[in-house]
Computed example of a mutant assay.
Amino acid sequence: MKLSIVDLSTIKPGETASDALAQSLETARNADALGYHRIWFAEHHMAPAQASHHPELLIAAAGTQTRRIRLGSGAVLMNHYSPFKVAEMFKQLEAMFPGRVDLGMGRATAGPVIDMAMRRHRDAQPVDDHAAQVSETVAWLHQAFPAGHPFAGKPLIPTVASVPESWLLGSSPGGARLAAQIGIGYSFAGFINPQAAALALRGYREAFVATPFASGAPRAMLGVNVCVGEDGEHGRRLALSVKGYYQRLTRIGATAFVPTIAEAEAELGAAERDEPTQIIGGRWPRFVAGSAEEVRQTLEQMIAQSGADELIVQDMMADPQDRRGSHARLAKAFGLSGETPS
């Protein structure tokens, strides 16, 4: 089982975005040493709790400080960008770090102000062209435009033969179908829509069409919120910081910061504090937490039910030391072959 990390560059209370970005690079170095397969960086805009606004910049920085771990985006929000620009950017990253770059593509709204600010033609009505955006980006990377197309015969950086791995990220069956039709990898955000994860990933495998754009076999990845403690009680206590952030998002919106554990304890009600962190009655939790053994057993159930061949863990604990401690305990639980970071 491959284990990977998606990093949001969470800002610890009392610290700055500069501090958080430095911590993201430290996380990448630690993940590389521990034996994680890849680390992806998120794209968030005007989100005070996260400092990762442009994953391409963190990919470039992390590439110079790591040895073998794959580096990617989780995800580039394709509804805001030109497919040419995205493809060329990631082709250049592939030129810098051959065989290590992933282009994870997704879409999201960041609210009306940001969505408008990122649009070039502001008088035109927005359209849902996500499938076309993804398909065109893949075509640029693989020189796959049909004869007669105005973009045919115009390769990106022709002296670089390798291309980044293409992935589609989503939280609905529609994204799974699109990834399967194009023949690229699919990563399902189980931390957004846990109850739909198994069905979507199984559907992706069943509908997968082999194309020249990847290995020819489905690659199914499951994203999960994970907090691994020194024991069960410690792991569930670590998860309070993440639960508290979700509660703040519901209560005050995108301006929320991630709370410390102490702040979350004061703000959460009993039902929120006690929200399950394991599979109960067949229902998947939004947060998987506990001891290394408890977490491993829950994740193995999720793997078996979804058919995922890779797990990518998200954690938004306020303290970066808590996050990296959780990464180390999870790596040990799954027997990753790496070294223990100092």
Rank of each mutant, 00 (worst) to 15 (best):
Q297R: 11
R29Y: 02
G232M: 15
I252R: 13
D319K: 03
L238N: 07
R70A: 01
E275F: 12
A42N: 04
I39G: 02
D319C: 02
G72S: 06
L238F: 06
D128Q: 13
S24R: 00
R67T: 15
L201F: 14
T27H: 09
H234T: 13
Q133F: 07
Q23C: 14
R296L: 10
V258M: 08
S171W: 04
A60M: 11
E275T: 14
Y186Q: 10
K12C: 06
C227H: 09
L141T: 05
M46C: 13
D128K: 10
E15D: 15
P194V: 07
F90G: 02
H53V: 13
L21T: 02
S162F: 06
M78Q: 05
G148S: 08
I114P: 01
S82K: 01
Y186F: 15
F90H: 12
Q247W: 03
S162C: 04
A264V: 13
M105T: 08
A308G: 09
A198D: 11
D7L: 03
Q301R: 05
E56K: 00
G183C: 10
E265S: 12
Q23G: 04
A220G: 06
W40Y: 05
I279F: 08
L249C: 06
G72M: 10
A117R: 06
T298W: 00
D102W: 01
N79Y: 10
Q305R: 14
L222M: 06
H80D: 11
A144Y: 10
L311T: 02
G325A: 06
L201S: 05
R67Y: 10
F287I: 13
E310P: 04
E230R: 15
E339S: 14
Q125F: 10
P48W: 12
W140G: 03
R202V: 11
D32Y: 11
L249K: 09
M221D: 05
L222H: 08
A200K: 04
R324F: 03
T277C: 15
I59T: 07
R273K: 15
H142L: 04
F213I: 05
M105P: 06
A42C: 07
A108G: 03
A254M: 14
T298H: 04
E165V: 01
L336D: 00
D115P: 07
D274L: 13
S215I: 13
A197N: 12
H327W: 09
F208Y: 14
V134N: 03
T137N: 05
S326L: 04
I11Q: 08
G269V: 15
L199C: 11
T260S: 15
G338R: 02
V127D: 09
F151S: 12
R177V: 04
R286M: 14
Q278H: 10
E230T: 15
G185D: 01
F188L: 11
R219A: 06
L103A: 03
A179M: 11
E43C: 00
F191K: 07
M118T: 08
Q301F: 10
E263W: 00
D322K: 00
G307W: 02
D102Y: 05
P158N: 08
A75G: 12
E275W: 13
L3H: 02
R329Q: 01
D19Q: 05
H37I: 03
E272I: 09
E265N: 05
G269A: 10
A60W: 06
